[in-house]
Design a binder for these strands. Structure first.
Lengths: 218, 218, 218, 218
DNA sequence: GATGAATGAGATTTCATTCAT
DNA sequence: AATGAATGAAATCTCATTCAT
């Protein structure tokens, strides 16, 4: 029987389209993550996938399109992973806590996805604006909903509502930044990271909602 | 009329090296910011600067080196701008407030610098690790010092000190993220942005320092 | 009529890799020999081979590597040609004679090979040290073996043995030099050339081996 | 007083043309010898000479011309050095001996000159045919004259006269080749080298002249 | 379905050379 | 006499992409 594994030489065994597409996407994520969008070559992808280049073009389109699909798939994955851990029947702070923990657990296990998603997509920018926006907004939405719902529960001050989105963006940015920092401090646990963020921001949210607002003293 | 402006065709007028170097760096920042490190071609830079390519190589080195110099210059600029606004004879919260406001004012006026610095440098990664690290650490250091000094003033809890760096990283990430968000919400003022961050984090810091720590309830 | 010859324009006909590699190497030898390593451009090689540049890089590597392969192939050719004519069942002088004749016959038919091998490789030096050394040593070895075996047959003096290598080097140099000179005296036959060298050196060898050593008289 | 040495910064002191030309030629020989004709850049020469590029062009012409002048000067030097040691009032063999010894002594002290002369000039070829030919012929002439005069003294056989030039060429080639070999065997003395050559060839010459000619036995 | 063969186009970089002071 | 400033032109190499089997 002919080999099916990527390392098999010669004409690869005929496989259903679905399987090949997964093979290719997996390879693409790996390669884009390792070298970045530009430095990654279609040759690398083809080699890594154990599939010839024309096939990539046939199945997943040109480089840009291929990258876009990587982003889409990985964004879905991480959002799904987080959502799966967030139960709506607990207090808002616990929801955020669970979400953050799930986020860092996922990141810890899929550094690649994270890299592809975040850094490269942001850097190349222009052409991938849509995909990035979509993914970003998913994260922000999740947080926004929490913050706002928390706020409305407790009769929140104008500040929070008015700036809910901004603050969610900031929180997401903080989370992402901390995830990067994690790479250089691997001995920290996901719980620690989530805890740092909760302490940094949640008390602030609470205070805000209790009407205690910071204002410059000058 | 003999052209002297960058767009002039033909042999450029003789200018002292210093002046040309600035011209070239300016052009490089513009081009890198507009297209990203990879998509920016040395031809573009040369055209934008109104100077032939060999001069770029002679004066500022190859593409990587040129980019590194862009990063260095712009990092210095932004750090200087922020430091210039931070007075050490005011309470820690006011220092942070001033710093953030200065940061957003600068970003508002130099979108390019910001882009070059942040997105591109992070994305290309590898080769520019040093430059990026330096710049990052400057920001984080500034915040760390504030946070920690604030903490020691008030007899701070172990959490803050132990995780001072992580939290500073998170704060810087939040600030950066908010700066990106600003691009799509141009009617917000620098004061607003700074204020959002202060409210999100400072009260948290204060509570922490007062011993009020968030812990999961499960 | 669809062209297949190297000079054909447009997309070259599909050929198996092996064939193309030979085509390219042939062209490279021609071009390097004609212009020298540095003056030869990859464009020339590509045009001469009737193949696009990327294929050259794909099949035979970058310029240095390509040149190295030229050297290797041509060195093998000439060494093989000479060895093929040298029978070990004849006296040493006849072996040398046959070798030299074969050498000049080969050189006469492949001026290009010779040029590529000798001049260019030596001149560029540095990067090709290994290839050159290998090729050189093959020639010197062949001669050394002859000289020394001849010597030991006849109870040879210390001079020869001690300096066998040096003398072989000198002989090879003489042969090469004479090959160059031949270019300007094309009416001389290979036999003549071989004969000159035999007369210049072999009697010297013999005398030496008989103990008749030249010494300065002062 | 302003600096005159090459390392002096700023505008060099005005110097008579003759002196500058020597400075430049010295530098050029050094640089060409170190890197080869192509790899040597006019910038290097200019830096090494401590003189600006326009001056080189003014005084000694473009790269080709500059190299030609290097060859000419160094060829003269070596020929002069050898001729200086050869006295015409001694037997022919001693003349050759002295010449060879002088040659290797010169080469030992001026590896650079030798390299420039021999390897590079030969390699670049084409453009420098004239200079090379000139230099070569000087060496060959010297030897030829010896050989032939020696021959006529002793009633020489037809072989020698008919092929005097060829044999001289071969001898010169042997000498050059041995000089190259010397680079890798630095513990050998000039006397040894000269002696090897004398033994390899002179006895052969003598035998020839005595009518003892080698002929293939088949 | 699958691929080896093939290329257009463009990127970075380096040099020899000259102009203008 | 002397040079800093400036460039045209070209060389090497790589890559995304397609053709033909």
């Amino acid at each position: 029987m002919a080999e099916v594994t990527p390392s098999g030489r010669g004409r690869a065994k005929r496989l259903p389209r679905q399987v090949r597409e997964k093979q290719i996407l997996d390879a693409a994520v790996e390669v884009f993550a390792a070298h970045g969008y530009y430095a990654a070559s279609m040759d690398s992808v083809s080699e890594t996938a154990g599939v010839s280049k024309p096939m990539i073009y046939d199945y997943l389109g040109a480089k840009e399109e291929l990258f876009a699909q990587c982003i889409r798939r990985e964004a879905d994955r991480i959002v799904t992973a987080v959502q799966h851990e967030v139960r709506t029947d607990v207090p808002a702070d616990m929801q955020l806590w669970h979400g953050l923990r799930a986020f860092y657990e996922f990141v810890g296990q899929h550094r690649q996805s994270w890299n592809v998603l975040h850094r490269q997509a942001l850097a190349v920018g222009g052409a991938f604006a849509d995909e990035i926006g979509l993914m970003r907004s998913k994260g922000v939405d999740m947080v926004s909903r929490l913050v706002i719902s928390a706020g409305s529960h407790q009769g929140l001050g104008g500040q929070v509502r008015q700036s809910g989105e901004a603050m969610s963006v900031a929180l997401v940015g903080a989370a992402e930044s901390l995830a990067d920092w994690w790479l250089d401090h691997p001995d920290v646990t996901p719980e620690n990271l989530a805890s740092y963020l909760m302490n940094l921001t949640w008390l602030g949210f609470n205070d805000l909602m209790a009407g205690e607002v910071w204002r410059p003293s000058e």
